[in-house]
Design a protein around this nucleic acid. Structure first.
Lengths: 139, 139, 139, 139
DNA sequence: GTGGTCTAGACCACG
DNA sequence: GTGGTCTAGACCACG
């Protein structure tokens, strides 16, 4: 399945992390399923106009998180879902990203309830966006 | 108003960011109000035992964010809490942060409820970590 | 604590992996303890005569495994022990390295018992090299 | 003697290495004896449905390891099981592999007994995965 | 064609 | 001084 990648330079978020986020999102939403092939390192590097090493770095992080896997000489593929991290580590990571969310959101002057409501909406947006999977596919 | 600042050098979070976060929190929580004077760069540097450059860098970021302002020769003050962003812009920024959070949390295999619960805890953790410690004021 | 690093080029094992192995060994044996500072990326790169990027790649892998951590602007330090991976993942990784061990050892014409004995010796060698840790075993 | 070869293209392990491993195993287990002829490159390539180059590369590695030998115009044969390495050299190589294994396993927080048990299972898994298929199968 | 490793070197962030 | 990101490009392994 084809996915539009967008990368911005000149923002604090590193390019390789932007790529990681977009692949993660595609997998989390079900746009990419286990077994699907990702764009090749070189192809994606050309598409978003960065060095292939940068894409390779992003893919490497996704491999280590167990989300994708490399097949020598053939490319990268979405992996079967498995739990790589211990529960303590998962908690640690969730707390860390929530902490930075809260810090940013409070500066934006949102109340607790507003933040929680926004999170609820984001979650159900994700869930329903992955609702399609019915038979229609086109490539 | 004087705030207890705690800075740890044994963790990955940069010192300057810890300072930024604590000032943000104090303002977000109302411990510091518009017009309040912040500790001087030198005083705070001595208090938390870091290089004054580090404090200056933290204050600089807060100025750029519009949270505090420098008054030449007099020091740093909490800025008027005028809303810098339009509601639409605030919403956009919050959603962007949430979008990234949600994809990471879902990939970590947390349920919606687990994520929301963890957010609630992070929010109340943030509150209790602010200036007052212990019980809430109820003025 | 100072550790002699040795790196060979011209062998199939990548340089960055040789570095990972040597750091891991130093930590596993207790030569390096939580809180100890590692050689800086540049210093180690000079010592073993490789590009700093290669050392950085090795350190990055160790960070992801939770063995060391970076403190911005200060360097890398041995982390407190924590379990990063799920039990299933730990098993997966152990099986994978045992599989390659067995494959190599059988080609070298060792019997099962010889392999197991050699493993026992290697384990007790490791334990005794880190001698301090807790009381003696008395098999 | 004919062996069932199984090659999977959906896993990270390269095809040529899967072939190498299976031949090694067959020889290590005695399913193939010195002087036995291996399937031709082309025949094996057809059997497991891969490119003949891949099989040729696998055979090449086995030749370099001294496990099989090419007889011009006639095909590949299992080599005499003369011992290529001195006992000291074999020991050195085994210890080197073990050294790396042990540091990784200890870092994964396995106990000595768990590692040894897992080794036993890997050894018997290797046996049962060889030509005979005694009855045991796992996945 | 695919990915994996490594170098040389630039530029930035942090203290 | 420290680490982090990124580029340009070489060379190798795998199929």
């Amino acid at each position: 399945m084809l996915l539009e990648f967008h990368v911005s330079t000149g923002i604090p978020t590193p390019v390789f992390r932007q790529i990681v986020d977009q692949v993660r999102r595609a997998i989390a939403m079900g746009s990419w399923q286990a077994g699907d092939q990702l764009p090749s390192v070189r192809a994606l590097a050309e598409q978003v106009v960065v060095n292939p090493n940068t894409v390779a770095k992003a893919y490497g992080e996704l491999v280590r998180d167990g989300l994708i896997e490399a097949r020598q000489g053939r490319g990268y593929f979405v992996a079967d879902r498995r739990q790589v991290y211990s529960d303590a580590e998962r908690k640690r990571r969730l707390d860390q990203i929530l902490w930075s969310l809260v810090s940013e959101a409070l500066v934006l002057n949102f109340t607790d309830d507003e933040i929680i409501d926004a999170l609820r909406r984001a979650l159900s947006g994700f869930r329903s966006a992955s609702g399609h999977e019915e038979g229609d596919s086109h490539e």
